[in-house]
């Protein structure tokens, strides 16, 4: 019986202990000149949807949920955001060459088309981020049009 108590104590203390580890928060009020919305004429409805569904992981500013204050959830989110930004950062869109833009647009189209993005682990909690079929089509059509210009 005593052993359980000890284990419980250790778990509790470890849990408290990891709360002191700092995480890099992905937050910035600055919207750089290279932002996707600034360099493209994006229709408002698509702007809103992209911000809701994509910008948390694919820009320099994440709207964090409350549980980001708690480890290990914060670590998990940090990893996701880091990976998301390394694949695509809408804030830095215009720093990409034409070739890279065309490449990224194609990936965006494919990922939205096949329901891979937004990630299901993300939409599970952010129900607003879910793209309806109509929204998907709207985004895809727009990205296709952009891609046509880039090619």
């Amino acid at each position: 019986m005593k052993i359980f108590k000890v284990i419980a104590w250790i778990a509790l203390i470890a849990f408290v202990g990891i709360q002191f580890f700092p995480t890099d928060r992905n937050e910035s009020d600055l919207i750089p000149q290279t932002d996707f919305m600034l360099v493209n004429q994006v229709p408002t409805s698509i702007q809103n949807q992209l911000k809701e569904s994509c910008y948390d992981c694919h820009s320099n500013n994440t709207k964090y949920p409350w549980y980001n204050k708690i480890q290990p959830a914060a670590w998990y989110l940090e990893d996701h955001v880091k990976e998301g930004k390394s694949e695509l950062n809408f804030n830095e869109w215009d720093s990409l060459s034409r070739r890279r833009k065309a490449s990224k647009l194609r990936s965006i189209i494919k990922q939205v088309e096949s329901d891979e993005m937004p990630l299901s682990s993300y939409t599970l909690i952010h129900s607003d981020a879910v793209l309806s079929k109509a929204q998907q089509t709207e985004i895809i059509e727009y990205m296709r049009q952009l891609k046509g210009e880039a090619n």
Partner: peptide, 13 residues
Amino acid sequence: STLGVVAIAFITL
């Protein structure tokens, strides 16, 4: 014993 547990947790971490 509390101190002990703290020490163990610290070592584990």
